[in-house]
Simulated scan of single mutants.
Amino acid sequence: MKRFRMKLGIFGISFLIVAQLVANTSGNFEAANESYNSGEYEKAAELYETLIPQKQSSAVFYNLGNTYYQLQDYPKAILQFEKALALAPTNPEIRANLKLTQEAAQLQPTEPSWTEVVAVKMNVNVWAWIAVVTFWGGAALIILPPLWGWRGPIKSGLIVLCVLLFAVSTIGLVGYHQLAKLGIAISDEAALKISPTSTSPTKEYLKPGESASIQRKHGNFFFVRTAEDKEGWVDSDFFKPVWD
């Protein structure tokens, strides 16, 4: 039953978070949804793509991922689902559709690090707010109570709580820092080259839809490393960062 519900998600369009879009983009969003539901997937993809520069929305990325899935362009679908997860990391429907698309592309999902596992429990902005509030709250609890003569277990307990929450939020932010380096090969021409030039010898190729961590950039090339320790310079025409 669970598997069946996950599969339903890949064919459905999310209307639950349309409110994220501003008024001047809602017309194109609805038009794209109508094209999708009519089976005009290429037109729907074009319309969703026009929305991205205007409004970074998990709804748009998610629906665009579904559209590319229907077009059997699995690498681009994976990229869009990853972008949607960057904005809505706790959404189980997006994560399920990403997994199904990776399976369709015959890719083995990369195991996340423990810091990344912690990070995706909440949005990056939530972690940032927790870190700020607990840091200054803990500082205030250390500095101010002696001035007022406030002592006791309640104060100590609040300080410990602030320290623990600050530590966890720091782990979450570190995880997001790692996730921010993620990129996806969107073509079978994603060659790993020895140097950042088009004439450089090719060491090997990334699989379409394969993820890699961006280490640095030079001109039109990214130096990337995969979980299997494959590394090299890849042309940005064939490899796209998730966080851009």
Rank of each mutant, 00 (worst) to 15 (best):
F4C: 12
F4I: 15
R5Y: 14
M6L: 10
K7V: 08
L8W: 12
S14E: 06
N28L: 09
N28H: 09
E34M: 02
S35E: 03
N37S: 12
I52L: 08
Q56S: 12
S58N: 10
V60W: 05
V60H: 06
Y62H: 12
N63F: 00
L64Y: 02
N66E: 00
N66K: 04
Q70P: 00
Y74A: 07
I78W: 05
L79H: 00
L79A: 01
Q80Y: 11
L85S: 04
A86L: 09
K99R: 14
L100K: 04
T101W: 07
A105W: 02
A105M: 03
Q108Y: 08
Q108H: 12
T110K: 09
E111P: 08
P112T: 04
V117T: 13
V118Y: 01
M122V: 08
V124H: 14
N125E: 14
V126P: 08
W136H: 10
A139M: 15
I143A: 14
L144K: 13
P153A: 05
I154A: 10
G157I: 02
G157M: 08
C162H: 07
A167C: 14
H177M: 12
A180Y: 02
L182T: 12
P196S: 02
S198E: 12
Y205G: 02
P208Q: 04
I214M: 03
I214W: 03
V224A: 02
G232T: 00
W233Y: 10
F238K: 14
